[in-house]
């Protein structure tokens, strides 16, 4: 009974829409005042399998999700190691490292659009180049990935930093006695100790990144010619631009299943190696 007040909002705002969304995936719901909805079984899923545009967008989503997560992790690890050193003004540096976290994705997107602006942008000004970063067919995706890495760094850094601080000092002392250098200390002590934190944060980051929407929507709206159309943007367009609600819901369900599968495989392997 005491659980009830906590449960009601969860049921109404989270479980309810989720179940509704899953149900919607099995219908031909369309936008329209007089649209009739009927149950179509697995038809949407069959259509999905043969939808080349979706798989193209899925491929882009995977490239995006994996590269952002990996780069984010490497950059954050470097930053966390640095911030873990006994530097002057360490406090200030740590605060600065967290600042991007305070920015909503839309603001980040707008800011980086100015950085990438072909005429007035910081980047072209700096290099004296004349590149339209966000509208070039081959550069748009890398350019967006850079922004993705930048945005996600704070939380990854903070988590890794916390992990680093919980590594027992004695371990370092012990290997130092054995005459280990900085690299060996990192490889044999820091990394194994950090492992659970790394697994947790990379999997969370991956889920977060593959479901990214607002950042890319603001930066490129999926363009040019669909080169940055992540699966979520694709689903959004199907639903709100073209009005195929049922199919869009199917996309949402399919993406969730795939993400869970990828994540499950990753966690399972990590758990096995950890044993």
């Amino acid at each position: 009974m005491l659980l009830l007040p906590a449960l009601v909002p969860v049921l109404v705002f989270s479980v309810g829409p989720l179940v509704y969304g899953i149900l919607l995936a099995f219908t031909d719901a369309r936008s329209g005042r007089n649209a009739e909805t009927s149950f179509v079984g697995l038809e949407n899923f069959a259509e999905l399998l043969s939808d080349g545009d979706f798989w193209e967008s899925f491929r882009i989503g995977m490239i995006w999700g994996l590269s952002v997560t990996v780069l984010q992790f490497l950059a954050s690890l470097g930053l966390a190691l640095l911030l873990n050193q006994d530097l002057r003004l360490r406090g200030v540096a740590r605060v600065l490292a967290v600042v991007p976290w305070a920015m909503p994705p839309v603001v980040v997107g707008l800011m980086w659009r100015l950085v990438y602006h072909p005429d007035a942008g910081l980047l072209n000004g700096l290099f004296g180049s004349d590149v339209d970063w966000l509208h070039d067919f081959s550069l748009a995706l890398p350019a967006v990935i850079v922004v993705g890495v930048w945005t996600g760094m704070p939380q990854t850094t903070v988590v890794l930093l916390a992990g680093l601080q919980s590594v027992p000092r004695e371990l370092y002392e012990a290997v130092s006695v054995d005459g280990a250098g900085a690299w060996r200390r990192f490889w044999n002590v820091t990394l194994p100790q950090l492992r659970p934190v790394v697994v947790a944060i990379t999997s969370l980051d991956f889920v977060w990144n593959i479901n990214q929407f607002s950042l890319v929507y603001v930066l490129t709206q999926g363009g040019p010619g669909g080169r940055t159309r992540l699966p979520m943007l694709f689903a959004y367009e199907e639903g709100f631009r073209y009005g195929f609600f049922g199919y869009a819901a199917t996309l949402g369900v399919a993406i969730t299943i795939v993400v869970l599968a990828v994540l499950g495989l990753y966690l399972w392997r990590q758990a096995r190696e950890g044993d």
């Binding site: 309810g16 969304g21 479901n211 979520m232 959004y236 639903g239």
Partner: peptide, 16 residues
């Protein structure tokens, strides 16, 4: 999962 999936977004609008 923290992020709302598209399914959720669509559902929310349909509910609305």
């Amino acid at each position: 999962m923290k992020r709302l999936s598209a399914a959720l977004a669509v559902a929310a609008v349909a509910l609305a």
